[in-house]
Amino acid sequence: MRIDCPLCGTRDSREFTPIGGAELLDRPAADAGAEAWDDYLHNRANACGPSRELWYHGAGCASWLVVERDTASHEVLGVTLAREVAR
Rank of each mutant, 00 (worst) to 15 (best):
residue 61 C to H: 01
residue 33 G to M: 11
residue 86 A to W: 07
residue 5 C to Y: 00
residue 16 F to V: 00
residue 6 P to Y: 07
residue 23 E to H: 13
residue 45 A to K: 10
residue 25 L to F: 06
residue 21 G to V: 01
residue 1 M to T: 06
residue 39 D to N: 14
residue 85 V to H: 07
residue 11 R to F: 01
residue 68 E to M: 10
residue 58 G to V: 05
residue 3 I to K: 03
residue 69 R to H: 09
residue 30 A to R: 12
residue 75 E to I: 01
residue 30 A to W: 12
residue 55 W to R: 00
residue 24 L to Q: 10
residue 21 G to L: 06
residue 47 A to S: 13
residue 75 E to M: 03
residue 46 N to L: 09
residue 21 G to T: 08
residue 19 I to S: 02
residue 62 A to Y: 10
residue 25 L to I: 05
residue 27 R to C: 10
residue 38 D to V: 04
residue 10 T to N: 05
residue 62 A to K: 07
residue 41 L to W: 15
residue 70 D to P: 02
residue 31 D to F: 10
residue 60 G to E: 04
residue 68 E to A: 15
residue 21 G to R: 05
residue 35 E to S: 14
residue 65 L to H: 04
residue 30 A to I: 05
residue 64 W to A: 10
residue 22 A to P: 03
residue 61 C to I: 03
residue 56 Y to G: 00
residue 52 R to C: 00
residue 84 E to I: 02
residue 16 F to T: 02
residue 62 A to C: 09
residue 59 A to Q: 13
residue 38 D to H: 14
residue 57 H to S: 02
residue 18 P to H: 09
residue 34 A to C: 14
residue 6 P to N: 07
residue 72 A to E: 12
residue 75 E to R: 14
residue 27 R to W: 07
residue 1 M to N: 08
residue 36 A to D: 15
residue 18 P to R: 14
residue 36 A to R: 12
residue 81 L to D: 11
residue 73 S to I: 02
residue 53 E to K: 03
residue 13 S to C: 11
residue 46 N to K: 09
residue 15 E to Q: 15
